[in-house]
Simulated assay, not measured.
Amino acid sequence: MQQQNTPDHAPAPAGCALRLFWMLIGNAVVYASLAVIAMNGDAFPSVLDGVVWLTVVLTIVARRVDITRWAGKTASGEPATLAHWRRYAITVVLVTAVASVLAHVIGGSLGS
C-alpha cells in the first residue's frame, strides 16, 4: 500500500479546483466579459451579461461548497464560515452590478 506525501491539511484536487475557480478563473471571466462589453458597446442585456451573471452565481456557489465541503479558508488562513460566505456573496453581487453598469456606460449602451 502506497502512502500519499501530502499533509493532512492539503485540500483534495476537487477542493483546489473549486478554489481556483472562485478566486481566479471566475473573476477573470467576469472582468474579461465586462471589458469586451465596454470596448464593443454591447447592448444591455447581451449574451456577455448572461455570462457575467452566470459566472457570478457559479463563483458564489463554489465558495459555499468550498466552505461547507472542503474546509475553505479566509485570506488570513482562518477557517471560513457562512458569515464569510454571505459577505463574499453580497460584495461580489454589488461590485459586479456597479462594474456592469460602468461597462455599459463606457461602451455607450447606457446613458445619454
Rank of each mutant, 00 (worst) to 15 (best):
A35I: 04
V65Y: 08
V95M: 14
A38V: 04
A75T: 11
Y31V: 14
T59P: 00
G77W: 09
L24R: 05
A38M: 00
S109H: 08
A17I: 11
V93R: 01
V61F: 02
V65H: 07
M39A: 15
A75K: 06
G111N: 07
G107R: 06
T6I: 14
R19A: 13
D49V: 06
D8V: 12
V51P: 04
A89Q: 10
L102F: 11
L18V: 11
W53T: 03
G41Y: 04
V92C: 09
W22N: 13
T68Q: 10
N40C: 06
V51I: 15
C16F: 08
G108W: 14
A38N: 03
M1C: 05
N40V: 07
A71R: 12
G108H: 08
V61R: 04
A10P: 01
T81P: 07
T59M: 15
D66Y: 11
Q4R: 13
G77L: 07
A83G: 10
N40K: 10
S100L: 02
P7Y: 12
A10S: 08
Y88W: 07
A103W: 03
W22H: 15
N5V: 11
R63N: 09
L34N: 02
A12L: 14
A71V: 03
V51F: 01
A35N: 03
A71M: 06
P11F: 03
L24V: 14
I60D: 02
V93E: 04
G107C: 01
T81C: 06
A14G: 05
V61K: 03
V51S: 01
V29I: 15
K73S: 07
A12G: 13
W53G: 05
A80L: 03
T68P: 01
Q3I: 11
W70Y: 15
G15F: 11
A103I: 01
A83Q: 13
A99T: 00
P45I: 00
V65F: 09
L82D: 12
P11Y: 04
L110D: 03
M39N: 09
F21D: 03
G41Q: 05
L110W: 14
G108R: 00
V98L: 11
H104Y: 07
R69V: 04
V65K: 05
L102H: 02
N27I: 03
D66H: 09
I106H: 01
F44W: 15
A97M: 11
I37S: 02
Y88K: 11
H9P: 02
A97K: 00
P13Y: 07
D8F: 05
L94C: 10
W70R: 06
L110E: 07
T81G: 08
H9C: 01
G26C: 02
V95R: 04
Q4E: 12
M1S: 15
L24I: 15
W22V: 10
A14Y: 14
T81N: 07
R64W: 11
V57W: 08
T55E: 02
A103Q: 07
I60P: 04
V93Y: 09
R64G: 08
G77S: 02
P45H: 08
W70T: 01
R69E: 12
L102S: 00
D42K: 00
V51N: 01
L82S: 05
T74A: 05
L110G: 02
V56F: 01
N5K: 12
L34G: 01
G107I: 00
L110F: 13
A62G: 10
Q3L: 14
Q4Y: 12
A28C: 04
A103N: 10
T81V: 03
C16V: 14
A62K: 03
E78K: 14
